[in-house]
Write a protein that binds this DNA or RNA. Structure first.
Lengths: 193, 193
DNA sequence: ACCTGAACACCGTTCAAGT
DNA sequence: ACCTGAACACCGTTCAAGT
């Protein structure tokens, strides 16, 4: 059997979802494909590049938010919800995306869309980009934590004395996002009371 | 030579600062101590526990914010600045703390203080905790990213086509924090215009 | 209480060679 | 173009045994 980059990414997503990020090794992916580990290096320069491709595919599968012509704040909430769902759809999805970003690799995270949406509310480029970054930091942190506590409840592997969020995750997500969006709105030139 | 937990943590911080988180291995710490790797397991059940201790020590060295009796929002900014400085003081400090948190281990992160400060502004427990969590997600994400781009500029190891923040990190930090704090303030029962 | 020495079951990556 | 086979230089962790 001969494979392409895309086949490998599909299998890798399967491994991720079944075994988790900690067990997403080159050797395991290779084994799953019925191939020698070294074969993967014909398709990806290294493991980081493979993980980046997996991260991009997970985000791509989540789709894009298309709120026709609703208000900028509704649009942001919608874009973030799509992003959150994309990550929640696979085991350790948020951790994977965070990890790839921590490598300094480019992941097709919707920073541009968010910044554009904010700019459409009348902000300049520099502010819009910074605000979009703020939103993304929150989203990745929140969803990673959310996914961690999901896992903590399913297996017993996590120290229960720490007790994680526990509160309604979807609520916490909306609340945090709303705080940031409100903070942005307050800075609109046209903002009154 | 015989060591205690605390000695090992000191050496581990040295290894972290010199070689980075990726090279902070049990074997390297042991080598630095002039001891067999297995010796470390007499002091820590596993690597995660050792990393958690290192994370706690780094945060402890950062100290605590003591803004006598200034306004709640100033207090929050101060607490976050202290936290940021603590992480920036060591190579990969923010990544380390994020990693330990991702394990589901308890790190002595100032969540309680932040929540208490917010509660002092007149919010209920549930909201205060959620808002504190929002702030921390932002802070860890932001400072990790900040530290990544510091590293990207010092070595050439990071894909320069991705080009990271580039903007003034301290400014971005303050801005993001301010957005969240403003969002919180807007929800104060006593808030007017 | 603290450590050694040896082993086990893994990693990511390289490289010559095959088809 | 895609893969094998073998090797290299690492990991974290366990465990019997030493002092």
């Amino acid at each position: 059997m001969r494979y392409h980059r895309t086949d490998i990414v599909q299998y890798a997503i399967g491994v991720l979802d079944q075994y988790g990020l900690a067990d997403l090794s080159m050797r395991r992916i290779a084994a799953e494909l019925g191939v020698q580990p070294s074969a993967l290096y014909h398709h990806f320069v290294n493991k980081q590049a493979l993980l980046a491709a997996v991260a991009d595919e997970i985000l791509a599968r989540g789709g894009r938010s298309v709120e026709p012509d609703s208000a900028w704040d509704k649009q942001i909430l919608s874009e973030c919800r799509v992003l959150r769902n994309a990550m929640l759809a696979y085991r350790d999805g948020a951790e994977l995306i965070s990890t790839v970003r921590a490598f300094g690799l480019g992941v097709r995270v919707p920073h541009g869309e968010l910044a554009e949406t904010i700019r459409s509310a009348g902000f300049d480029d520099s502010f819009s980009r910074a605000a979009a970054t703020t939103i993304l930091h929150f989203v990745f942190g929140q969803v990673s934590y959310e996914q961690l506590s999901l896992q903590a409840h399913s297996d017993g592997a996590i120290d229960s004395s720490v007790d994680l969020p526990a509160g309604d995750a979807a609520y916490e997500f909306s609340l945090g996002l709303m705080l940031i969006v409100d903070g942005i709105r307050m800075r609109q030139p046209s903002y009154e009371r």
